[in-house]
Design a protein around this nucleic acid. Structure first.
Lengths: 145, 145
DNA sequence: AAATATCTTAGCATTCCGCTCGGATTTTGT
DNA sequence: ACAAAATCCGAGCGGAATGCTAAGATATTT
């Protein structure tokens, strides 16, 4: 029941961009350094996020990456789907195009996995990068106190 | 965000044993046949469930496997933990012995994964094999109607 | 033209997955 | 005693995915 590092790193990178939202394009090297990820590897991962329409890129000197939308409108669920594909504990309850097995209609375990999937979707889609920024704010305030 | 077939098959096998609970030891070949799993492979998987104390085995002719406890007291969460290890979307929020990263206390994504983990645990620990038997009963009744 | 970035593709070592297979051991029934 | 039916145990293995590294092509700014 693990995420690969793709989803893990993807969210880290997106949150980093959210923290610098409004400051123009952020070079990937900065993100990689701050989040402690190989920048060569992150380059490949951010390409996926770009193709999914979650970030915009600016090429050339002074270039970098910017969130495609404001942090409040980008959810963890979107990011994870982009990085790891449809959310589903097992293939037969995938959000899109589940490959049905022959006893799908009498399969009780399928009901279980559907409930698990629904909970996953519910929590991931309910958290936005904006929410995470607020959490960070609260956390840093309580730290200073 | 996928389970391996280990967890998938593990639950199928345990549910099969639950359906025949009280009928004495069930040979693994029967389970494998009904659930359409390679019996050689299932043999390895059931060994894990046995070592976790979820099933008892009876060797020799007329032998087989029996749930170690009644279906109502065995949860999906227990089975998945046995087959796949501690429930956690990322390692740093593992239920047991999380390997902390150096910025663990200021990591916002960690808060997200903790919430995801908690939801997973909540739903998996709330469903027992007994619950699944009731679901199967309801489903077969509504099918006949 | 130089510097700074993104973009794209190839490759690669390691690990995990999902098995197969062979045989040892235990128990029951004839 | 013997055969049959089962669990037990470990070795091995092909294929796929993971998590990178590396090298260069392209675009943009200064």
């Amino acid at each position: 029941m693990r995420l690969s590092t793709r989803g893990h790193y993807g969210l880290l990178a997106m949150f980093d961009l959210a923290e610098h939202y409004g400051a123009g394009p952020i070079p990937l090297k900065m993100v990689a350094e701050r989040q402690n990820i190989s920048d060569n590897y992150l380059e490949q991962l951010i390409a996926v996020l770009r193709k999914a329409g979650l970030v915009r890129s600016v090429r050339g000197s002074q270039g970098g990456y910017i969130l495609a939308r404001e942090p409040g409108s980008i959810t963890v669920g979107e990011i994870i789907r982009a990085m790891e594909g449809p959310i589903a504990p097992v293939e037969c309850v995938s959000e899109v195009e589940p490959t049905e097995c022959d006893q799908a209609d009498s399969c009780i375990t399928r009901l279980v996995w559907t409930r698990v999937r629904d909970k996953l979707v519910e929590v991931m889609d309910s958290i936005s990068l904006g929410d995470m920024l607020r959490d960070a704010e609260r956390l840093s305030v309580s730290r200073k106190a």
